[in-house]
Design a protein around this nucleic acid. Sequence first.
DNA 1: CTGCTCGTGTTTACCGGTCAACACGAGGAG
DNA 2: CTCCTCGTGTTGACCGGTAAACACGAGCAG
Lengths: 363, 363
Amino acid sequence: MATLRDVAAAVGVSHTTVSNAYHRPEKLSGALRERILRTARELGYPGPNPLAAGLATRRAGAVGVLFTEALSYAFTDPAAVLFLQGVAGTSELADVGLTLIPAPPESPSAGEWASDAVRRAVVDGFLAYSLSDDHPGVVAARARGLPLVVVDEPEPRPGDGVPFVYVDDRDGARQAAAHLAGLGHRRVAVLADRLAADGRSGPADGARLGAVTYAVVRHRLAGYLDALPAGSRPPVVECGGNSAELGRAAALGLLAGPPEERPTAILAITDRLAEGALAAARELGVAVPGELSVVGFDDLPPAAAAVPPLTTVRQPLVRKGEVAARMLLDLIAGAAPGAGGAPERVRLPAELVVRSTTAPPAR
Amino acid sequence: MATLRDVAAAVGVSHTTVSNAYHRPEKLSGALRERILRTARELGYPGPNPLAAGLATRRAGAVGVLFTEALSYAFTDPAAVLFLQGVAGTSELADVGLTLIPAPPESPSAGEWASDAVRRAVVDGFLAYSLSDDHPGVVAARARGLPLVVVDEPEPRPGDGVPFVYVDDRDGARQAAAHLAGLGHRRVAVLADRLAADGRSGPADGARLGAVTYAVVRHRLAGYLDALPAGSRPPVVECGGNSAELGRAAALGLLAGPPEERPTAILAITDRLAEGALAAARELGVAVPGELSVVGFDDLPPAAAAVPPLTTVRQPLVRKGEVAARMLLDLIAGAAPGAGGAPERVRLPAELVVRSTTAPPAR
DNA sequence: CTGCTCGTGTTTACCGGTCAACACGAGGAG
DNA sequence: CTCCTCGTGTTGACCGGTAAACACGAGCAG
C-alpha cells in the first residue's frame, strides 16, 4: 500500500507538504494541492493512516463504552441501547467514533492480564456503564490513565476524583413504594435481579441483601424500604436474570398462595420483570390492578404500551447517555474533573409515572 | 506518561525485552518478567500503547460498522440493533473491538472529503449496513482499501468482488403477497418507506417507484408484485419514515373511504409501519383481521406480542449480523473473497409467519 | 574437546504519520 | 536601497511500539 512518502516522491515534494495537502490546505498553493491529491488518487493512496496519525497526535478519535458481559447481551437490553443512543447522539456531534468494549466480569485468568479488550482499545477515554463494584474493567480502564466517566455504578468513593453520572434510583424507588403504601398496600413483595453476578434465583435472605454487588440494585432496594412502613421487611425474590420470562417464573411462585396470603402488590426492580409479573398474574387469573398492583422501574417504551399500561419509575436513559458522553468529551478536551469545567458528579432525577397497574388493594 | 523505554531503562534491560514481557513471556525468564511488570506498575506505565502497537503490527484490532444517518438513529431501529447483536456476538469471539461509524448520506461539502469518520476510523475492515445505492460511505470504505462486506444494500455489481450478505427480501415479500392473494384479497395497498433518502410521504407515482434508491425496498416492492394478480398495481403510499406513528398516519388516509372502496389488506414494508396500520384500524373501528388484513415485514420481537399478533415475514436479523461479521473476519484473516475461503455472496432466507392479522376479506 | 542447540537478551530497522523550526524568494514599507 | 513580512516549502526529530537478525554462555551429544 502506498504511503504518504510515496506520494511525495511521485509528485516531487516533501512528505510534509503531502501531509499538509490533507490537513492544512492553506499552507500550500491550490495548484500544488490539486496535483498532490490527484497523484494520490492515481497511486491508490488511501489517505493518511489513522493509526500513524493517531500515534503522532496522541488522539485516537474515539471513545470507548464498557459493558458488563458480552456486547451481544448488551444489545439485548433496551435500557443499555437507549443509553447508547444518548451517547451516540452527543459523540457524533463532536465527531468522534464510538467503540464498544465488552468487559466480562471474570476474574483474571493469566495473572493480572484480564480485560484485554480494555487494554487494547484504541480510544481517548472510557465510559463505564453499569459495572459491578468490584469489576476489573473499571480497574483496567483507570490503569490506562485515560479520562473515565462512570455511569450508574460502581459508585466511586467521594474524593476519588472519578466523574460519575447516575440516577437517583433510591428516590425513584421510594416514590414507587410510597405510592403503594399510600394506596394502602401492606403485603408488598419485591422482584429483584442482580444482587450479585452469580445469576442466582430464589428468595434472598438477609445476608445476601446485605451484600449486594450492584449499587443500582442496592439503592432501589433501599428506596423501597425507605417508604414502606418502618420495620416491614418485604420478601425479596431474585429472578436470576432480567427478562420477562424469568420475572414471570418468580412471580408465579409469589402468587401461588391463597388470596389472603399472597402479596397485594409487587415492586419489580425493572420493567421487564414487571412485565413478567403481569404475565404471571394473567395466567393465574389474578386481576391487575384489582387484586394485584405492579410497579416497574425504567419506563422503557413498551411500558406505556403494555396492557394494562404499566405504572413505573421513569429514569432518563437517553439523557444519561448524553450527559455522560458530554462529560467525557469535556474531560478529553482537557477540563479537569471537579475543577471549573466538568462537575465531578451529576445526579439525574427519577420520577414515578402512574399508569394503570396500581390501585388500592382488594379488601 | 511513562513509555516502554522508560520501564526498560528503570529495569536496566532493552526495550524489546519489556515488550516481550507483555506479549511473549516465553522469551524471557520468569523472574525478569516479574521484575519488569512490577517496575512498570510502580512507574504507572499503562501497558503498551495500542496505537503504536497497531501501527507496528498493522492491525487495529477492531471492525467498523457503517450506518446510514446518525448512530443515535440507528439505535432507534430494532432491526439494526438485532443485526448489531449478531455482529457483536461473533466479533467478540474473535476478540476484536467493534466501532460504530455514522455515515450520513450528505454529499461531500468540501470536494471529495466527506464521510470523514470512515476515513479516520481505526479499524481493520468495514461492515456497511443497509446503505443506499449511491452512498458515499461505501465509496469511502472501498477507498480505504480495507476488507469490506456489504450487508443488505447497496447490491454490488456481480463480479465487482465485494462480498455481500443479504436476505431474500423479494421472496419474503412474494410469500406475504401470495398469502393475501390466496386468502382472496383483491384490493391490496402497500405501506412503504425510504423509496429515496428524501423522507417524502404520500402516494408514490410510477416515476418514483421506478427509481427506488434502496435495494431492500426495491426488492420487497417487486416481491409484492410477483405474487399479486398479474397487471394489478396496488397503490403504494410512502410514510416518510419508519415509525408506528408515521405508519398510522398513512394508514388513516388509506382507510378513510367507505368499506367498499378501501383496501381489504395492507402490505406494510416493515413491522413498525404494520403496527401503525393496526393502530389506525383500531382507531377507525375497522376490525382486524375481519375487515382488514395486515402483513408486516421483519418479525421484530414486538410482532408476536402485538394484539392481535402480527402476521409478518421473518428475516434472520441476528444471523445476518453473525454471517456478515464472520465473513469480514475471514477476509481480514486473509481469505480472498470468492476464492476458496469466503464466498462472495450469501443469501439468507425470509419466511412468512402467519399469525392473527390476516384472514379472508369480508364479503 | 568440538560443535550444536537452546534459552535469554540485545541491536537495529522499520511502521506511517505530525509538527516545530527553519529556508528562501518576492513584494511592500520606510 | 535595505529590511521585514508573508507565502510556500523543506528538514529533521519525534510518536511508542514490534520483529527479524544476531550475540553469547551453558548444557550436552558425539
